[in-house]
């Protein structure tokens, strides 16, 4: 995918800009097709979800991580391994809720929006909403039900891009034998 160097054993690399441009073209086309920011957000999340449920297996196969015992461990692995492996960035984790079930990922330079300037009148569009879907899909496959949403976005003039994750429950029905 993008500027990854951490991944070993795979000499094929794609130019990061091509990836960014591809994603940009996708969002632009969705905007033309749906003409509604909310609908585009929904579509992006859906796409991300479908990526997430597949990507998690790749992540597990290559990262050698065990099962997390609490949400803090999860947050650490998402940022330090997940984002690093696939996007080449390490978001900062902050703004923990007192109960320890919500946190924020702060992204300084989002590779998806490298060349992007949002046009007027798209204040509701979450350009990188695909990331929310990926996180939700991936965590759901390892039996964690979470809500993921954008709080701030540098594209909308905020200082930083902030994605918030909220842990709802463990999906007990889906836990594989031996781990319940």
């Amino acid at each position: 995918m993008s500027r990854q160097t951490a991944r070993t054993g795979d000499p094929r690399k794609v130019n990061g800009e091509l990836f960014t441009l591809t994603y940009g073209a996708l969002v632009a086309q969705l905007l033309r097709d749906y003409e509604d920011d909310e609908e585009v957000n929904k579509q992006l999340e859906k796409m991300g979800y479908n990526i997430g449920v597949r990507l998690i297996e790749d992540f597990l196969a290559r990262s050698n991580t065990g099962r997390c015992n609490d949400f803090r461990e999860t947050s650490d692995i998402i940022s330090r391994l997940g984002f690093k492996m696939y996007l080449g960035i390490t978001p900062v984790i902050s703004n923990w809720s007192p109960a320890g079930d919500e946190f924020s990922l702060l992204i300084e330079n989002n590779p998806l929006s490298d060349f992007v300037e949002l046009p007027e009148g798209h204040s509701a569009l979450n350009y990188s909403n695909i990331l929310c879907g990926v996180l939700k899909g991936a965590l759901e496959m390892i039996q964690m039900d979470v809500d993921v949403w954008f709080v701030q976005d540098q594209l909308k003039g905020d200082n930083i891009t902030e994605i918030r994750l909220k842990f709802n429950k463990r999906l007990e029905d889906a836990v594989p034998a031996g781990e319940d």
């Binding site: 998690i56 597990l60 196969a61 099962r67 496959m141 889906a174 836990v175 594989p176 031996g178 781990e179």
Partner: peptide
């Protein structure tokens, strides 16, 4: 005559 090896992933495969 044989040995069966099984590995279950975290997602249950």
């Amino acid at each position: 005559t044989f040995k069966l090896h099984c590995h279950q992933t975290m997602t249950g495969v």
